[in-house]
């Protein structure tokens, strides 16, 4: 497939993927607890079959789609992406997924739509973190339509050619590699096209710390920690820090933000 797309950046040489074990045992998925190992321990309770996605808002073909129907006829691609968490750690993940633009084109985006909103499933009886109300669930996220239509934005259904694990957002999740990881919302049950900027979970929880855009940006620190460097997972106890790249090393998205001050539009 389109692995080449992932390597638009200068730092392609270091795109050695993390192991499946690393990718599936160190996660943030607060619906299953706040510890990094909690999702791997608890996410087996998530019911992923049957799975349907509600598509609504400013689309030509709204409705409740069975997952297979929504993806039927669309091509699954391999994308090796850097993944940068807002907590200043990072991984490299070999995703399998469908370009979000393909899905949006399939359901037919109406001309006035400006944003795409996403929502994560809530299964309170299966999600221990939902009961603890760590965040205001359901988890919601959003993209501007041009960000959503960018060819780097995918909806992932697999990692290493295996169906995506529950703790990684089964059965389908967003992956936007130039933004902090929390933008890449997991276990999606709703996609809404809208003309107003949708609310996003971490922005609601703490608007000073988490903006709508949340592009990876080494020059704008999180109020409580630096974003200038990161630690690549997998280096052990003596792993060296490495410099964080603007847009996480995907400079091809810079044109999306022409005329915007990215120290303000965080």
């Amino acid at each position: 497939g389109a692995i080449g797309l992932a390597g638009g950046a200068s730092a392609q040489g270091d795109l050695e993927p993390n192991t499946l074990e690393e990718i599936t045992s160190y996660n943030n998925f607060y619906e299953f607890g706040t510890g990094k190992g909690d999702p791997a321990a608890n996410a087996h309770q998530l019911q992923t079959s049957p799975w349907s996605i509600k598509v609504d808002g400013m689309v030509d073909n709204p409705g409740d789609y069975a997952l297979d129907d929504l993806l039927a006829g669309l091509s699954v691609e391999d994308r090796i992406y850097r993944f940068r968490c807002v907590e200043a750690w990072s991984m490299v993940i070999p995703w399998n997924g469908i370009e979000l633009a393909d899905i949006l084109n399939k359901v037919g985006v109406q001309s006035g739509a400006k944003y795409v909103a996403f929502e994560t499933v809530v299964q309170p009886e299966n999600m221990i973190g939902v009961q603890r109300r760590v965040l205001d669930f359901p988890y919601v996220e959003g993209l501007r339509l041009d960000e959503a239509m960018h060819p780097l934005s995918i909806m992932a259904t697999g990692i290493y050619d295996e169906p995506i694990y529950n703790q990684n957002g089964a059965p389908i999740r967003l992956v936007v590699p130039w933004k902090y990881g929390f933008k890449s919302i997991k276990s999606i049950v709703r996609i809404t096209l809208t003309d107003v900027e949708p609310p996003t979970s971490w922005n609601k929880a703490n608007p000073r710390e988490y903006g709508f855009y949340s592009n990876v940006n080494p020059t704008v620190d999180h109020p409580r920690w630096s974003q200038a460097s990161e630690r690549r997972i997998g280096g052990g106890l003596f792993a060296q820090r490495q410099d964080t790249l603007m847009f996480n090393g995907y400079p091809e998205v810079a044109s999306l933000y022409e005329g915007q001050d990215l120290s303000v539009d965080i």
């Binding site: 074990e21 690393e22 045992s25 160190y26 990094k36 190992g37 750690w89 630690r231 997972i233 997998g234 052990g236 106890l237 792993a239």
Partner: peptide
């Protein structure tokens, strides 16, 4: 942590 056992499997520095 050094041998990345148990909770130290993936990211030993922060965990330690």
């Amino acid at each position: 942590a050094l041998n990345q056992i148990g909770p130290y499997l993936v990211e030993p520095i922060n965990v330690l």
